[in-house]
Structures are given as C-alpha cells and as structure tokens.
Design a protein around this nucleic acid. Structure first.
Lengths: 208, 208
DNA sequence: CAAAAATTTTAGTTGAATAAAAAATTTTTT
DNA sequence: AAAAAATTTTTTATTCAACTAAAATTTTTG
C-alpha cells in the first residue's frame, strides 16, 4: 500500500498537466515555457522535466488523457446498427472533430501531431498511437455490427475496411487542424466525396 | 539583368542546402546545428537564418527541391492506360517510397512531416503542400486516362477518387516513415488491403 | 570612385535540457 | 515516538543551440 507518496506524486502530475493545458490554451504552445508551467503548478521546472522529459511530453500526456475519454464517448454515442457506412464514417469523423475543438485549439493540435511524428518511438507517442488504434477498432466493431444487422454485405472484410476508413478520416482530420480557416463542414464534404468516389469503384464490376 | 549578384546568391543557397543535406544524412537532424551547416557551406550562420529562417526551413527547402523531381519522374514512369486502379495506386505509392528512401533517411522524413504540420502557414510548408497537390493531380490524370481507355467506368468522379486515393496513400506513407522497422512490402500490403476492402463496398449495391 | 545592397561580425537574449549536491519528506527501524 | 534510511524534489549551476539586432565590412553596380 505504498500510497501516500504515490498519491502526492499523482496530484503533482495532475497539477502540472492542468497548468500546462491552461497555459497552452491561453498563450499557445511556443510561448509557454516549462518554467511557467512549473510555476503555475507549484513545482520546480526540474520536476516537470523529470516527469515528462520535454515540453512536448507534457502536451502528449495531456492529450492522451483526454483521448481516453473520447473513446468512451464514441463507444457510447455512435449508433450500433441500422446506419449507412458512409453516414457512420461521417458521424465518427464529426465526433472526433467536435472533441478535438472542445479540448484544444487547432494550433495546439498541430503541435501534437508534430510531436508524435517527430519523436515516434517515445513512450507517449506510442501511447497516442495505441489510442488511435482503439479508435479504429470502434469503427471496425460498428461495421461488424452493421453486417450482422444486414445493413452491409457480410462478405466484406470489416477489419480492413474499418482501418482504411480510419486512415482516411484521420488524414482529413489532420487537414482540418492544419488550417485555421478550414471548417468542419468543408472537411465533412471532402470526406464524403472521398467515400462516395471510392465506393463507386466497385459498383460496375470489372470492365475487362 | 541584375544577375551576377543573383547568381552568387543562388550558389550560396545551393551550397547551404547541399551541406545541410549531407549533414542531415550523416549525423541526423537534431545533431546538425545551423552553425555546422553554415561552416560547411562557407557562410555565416546568420546568412542561413536570413535565407531560411529556421533549421526546419532549410530542411523543407531541400525537400521541396527533390520533390519537384519526383513529380517529373512519376509523370514519366507511371503507365498511362491499361492498368487496374488498384495496381496503379500501389505503383504510385511504391515510387513515392522509393524516392523518399533514396533521398533521405526515415528519421529525417519524420522531421519534415513534423515541420510541415507544426508551422503550417509558413511559405515553405505551403510550398510542400502544393507539391502534394501536384502529386494527387498526377493520380487524377491517370485515372481519367484509364477511363478514356475503358479500364475504368467513365461515370466515376476522377477528381475525388484521385484525391481520396492520394490521401490514403499519404497516410500509409507517413506510417511507413514513422517506424524504422516498417518495410515497404508491409505498407504495400496494408494499402492493398485498404483498397480491396473499400472497393468491395460498392459491389453488392444497396441491401435495403 | 561613390552609392547601394548584401553579408558577416559582434554581442546578446532566451529557453530547453541536464548534472550534481542539498534539502525535504516519507518510510522503516529501533 | 525518535532516529536512521531511502527516496523524491529542489536548488544551483552549466551547457548548448536557436534566434535576433545592429554595426561594420565587403561586394556589386552605375
């Protein structure tokens, strides 16, 4: 029951992450210094480094937390059956964008993506990727359930389809956060166009 | 005809970009300092800053150059007609990966992606995105020509299909560079699975 | 050769990151 | 409960490199 010390550690970490979030939102990532985070959290800057290694480390820790919530929310709110594949995917995308915007500014999300890419391999990057995979799994399971419900042909490969749809959605999400002027509606339209065009390919069968 | 000065400027820039490339390949991005680039190029570090602003700036300049070549190469080598959509896309993806690996290490590509994402909005980021769009256009044109050749149903929306395929390919490309252990074959397989699953959706028509 | 333009030098700021010793706190032992 | 041991945090100090500003110098042009 080594817990008093552990609890305090947890509290300290919570304070750090909380202060970081507030500062990121207030003055942006670049202009937030590790020292300002440390000050706001009532710890020393060395402690921040000890826990999270780098400034990006703090950011990723913060995002990992909030993304775990997103998965639960998605799991709960995404309709289970009786929905078109295209609509399902769009709904999925919309919820992710909603969540992202509710959590942090686009600008900060760009830093998240950059950090995950730039130091792929770090603990926190890998945690982030794992969450992505869980998101993809949500989609896969909905596809399977649509197949059971008869809304979608059963011979389709649900796993690969779900992953492909996730990749596409994710690519568009990154586009969404990459431009301040890009609206959710515009991204939704693009994703819709993507899917419509792709789904149209199979329709005619081989022309040969 | 203000050209002597302009020529020297160009030469200086070439030297900077060349030295940077050599250093990035040799010791990696992080351990290359702007001063070492400047030294190798025979200019002062301030000059490097003046031209490219940041270290990432130099990197993006370098990549923009080499990617222009890629587009030409693709345009020349990608078969014009008489090819399946799936094979076309895979070939496209393969050439991009080949080019990427021939140019820089995965590690450096990660920095490229990070830089483009992190300061979206900078000149060089936007140039990079423009090149991406040109890449997508190559795909679109091949699709149109496949339609003219009768290999693909003419009623399909070539523009949106091409863009969707590019997005998917790009997502998989980023996955490719994100892990040192990820092979081209593995990525090709994933992309093939993506496409097969997506194209299968249309086949049955509506079940409703 | 003088004017104009660009580069380099000089000098300084900033903040991330790290190391090692000191201080504080918690746990364990007596 | 007090002392000792163990662990964590903070202090202190330093390094490193990106980036910037302004003056000095060089180069080009007319």
């Amino acid at each position: 029951m080594s817990t008093l010390r552990a609890r305090q550690k947890q509290e300290r970490q919570d304070r750090i992450v909380g202060s970081a979030k507030a500062l990121f939102k207030k003055v942006g990532f670049d202009r937030t210094t590790i020292e300002s985070i440390a000050d706001a959290a009532g710890v020393s800057s060395v402690t921040v480094h000890n826990y999270y290694g780098t400034k990006s480390g703090v950011l990723l820790a913060l995002v990992n937390e909030s993304d775990s919530l997103l998965i639960e929310k998605l799991e709960a709110s995404l309709p289970t059956a009786d929905i078109e594949l295209l609509e399902l995917t769009l709904m999925f995308a919309r919820q992710i964008m909603d969540h992202a915007i509710a959590t942090l500014e686009k600008n900060i999300w760009r830093q998240v993506v950059a950090a995950v890419t730039s130091d792929a391999g770090s603990q926190l990057s890998m945690a982030y990727r794992k969450l992505d995979q869980q998101l993809a799994d949500v989609l896969v399971r909905r596809i399977e359930s649509a197949q059971r419900a008869g809304t979608l042909q059963p011979q389709i490969d649900a796993l690969h389809l779900g992953r492909a749809l996730f990749q596409l959605q994710n690519a568009r999400f990154i586009q969404f956060i990459s431009f301040d002027g890009m609206t959710q509606d515009e991204i939704e339209l693009r994703l819709r166009n993507d899917l419509t065009a792709l789904f149209a390919v199979g329709i005619g069968g081989s022309t040969q």
